[in-house]
Design a protein around this nucleic acid. Structure first.
Lengths: 246, 246
DNA sequence: AGTTCAATAATGGTAGAACCATTATTCCAT
DNA sequence: ATGGAATAATGGTTCTACCATTATTGAACT
């Protein structure tokens, strides 16, 4: 018996999505470029404006284009970023498809490697950024938001330094989940993640000592990770009733 | 001066997205449940049907709902899966925002850990699955698709066994990218990934020897990784002109 | 009784037109 | 120069009508 494939009548809007998507991924439509107006595209594809709009919603949702209103507005091709990936990841966490416990395991394995790579790729400029970030995070903060922002920035800089964009997106995702849990649960972030926690890591990286950097990061991940795991239950309880997603 | 926040008039469809999304994430709308029809929802929200449809396109694109046509059709709440995350990841690879080289680094760090965890969580049932998968992959295959499918399944089973859903989604993403590169570039997958390559890994896992499993996987990742890195250039060249994305 | 097939109704899919809202540009009055 | 109205282009929204798909119903015919 021959292998038949399922027949699924495709939507017009999906055809539009595919053509535009291919154009972008193949490089024919470059970032920054402006697509024709909805009305013109509808004419070109010989479909209704609704179909074009639905296609735009999907492409927008995937981060391929962004839409601006008004004259000189329209759909502009975007450089694909990691932001949407991070957000889908957060969604999975919110939907309880992944736990802090699991992320802890991932973090414990990957963050030391990131620190190690950062130490190996140390440049004068990054040394400067890292030093300043460490200074910043040891100052008292006015709000928890600000405190979290400062204390995550060391992680972000290390992730950038390691020159592996996967590790970069991983750290972004981990930090975003962390941020949410902390904001929902912790009364005082500076208490559970006191200033100076990153100092041994940063010092090892600045010294170009990859092994020591990895070990220092490992200890930090263990220390802070335990606190965070405890925080998850409070977070889940708090989230189960009230709404307001992102 | 007080900190003003930027004013962005929101779209009606985005409001609809947010309300439905919150309903799903908070658990008020459970998986399998059917949303009201487009016409009814439009009335409830006091917006047009188009607005509801655009919202549906976004929610569909993010994997929150799926739409069925015909009588008894409508929008059904979906259990959130890792599929969309995997696809966005593949998109980033296709857009050259991430390279095989980088993924190799990630794989080299994580897959040994996965193998190690799998060995630690060995059960009779999984031992059986693993053994059968190994047998399967050592049979000759009729097509490259089939060959790839069989040879990735060991990785999938190990990822499931390790009981960390992040590692699971990581492996899925890595395998999907691998699949594409191989399909585009390799004349004979069985040549670059001969049967039996996984045998040392599987044997170590079945023996419950975590350290040996990790080491065997590390060697496998190095061996196959080098081949794949060479395959990337061929893939990029081939992809740059013709279209047909997924 | 069982089978087949046509009619029906509910639902999503598509189209077109009209109008509103936002924004850059232009031009005019001050 | 500055401020502000008019203009035009574009996305945002709504409405209406109709097409396409599918489950159900019930009649007609074995």
């Amino acid at each position: 018996m021959p292998q038949f494939k399922p027949i699924r009548p495709s939507r017009v809007s999906d055809e539009v999505v595919m053509q535009l998507r291919d154009g972008i991924l193949s490089g024919q439509l470059k970032a920054g470029e402006r697509l024709p107006s909805e009305r013109d595209l509808a004419q070109e594809f010989e479909v209704s404006r609704v179909a074009v709009r639905e296609a735009f919603r999907k492409l927008e949702n995937s981060g391929f284009i962004c839409i601006r209103h008004g004259a000189t507005g329209g759909a502009f091709v975007q450089e694909l970023t990691f932001d949407h990936l991070t957000m889908s990841f957060v969604d999975l966490f919110l939907a309880e498809k992944i736990s802090i416990q699991e992320l802890y395991q991932v973090r414990l394995l990957n963050e030391p490697e990131i620190a190690s790579l950062a130490a190996q790729h140390l440049t004068a400029e990054n040394a400067d950024r890292l030093g300043k970030a460490l200074e910043e995070e040891e100052k008292p903060s006015q709000s928890m938001e600000e405190d979290i922002h400062r204390k995550t920035s060391v992680h972000f800089i290390l992730a950038e330094m390691c020159q592996n964009r996967f590790f970069e997106v991983l750290v972004r995702a981990l930090m975003e989940v962390t941020r949410r849990v902390v904001l929902a649960g912790a009364p005082d972030f500076n208490f559970i993640h006191p200033a100076g926690m990153h100092r041994p890591v940063v010092e090892a990286v600045l010294a170009g000592d990859a092994r020591r950097a990895a070990e220092a990061m490992r200890l930090h991940a263990i220390e802070f990770g335990k606190t965070l795991i405890e925080g998850e239950k409070a977070f889940r309880d708090k989230q189960s009733r009230p709404l307001s997603g992102r």
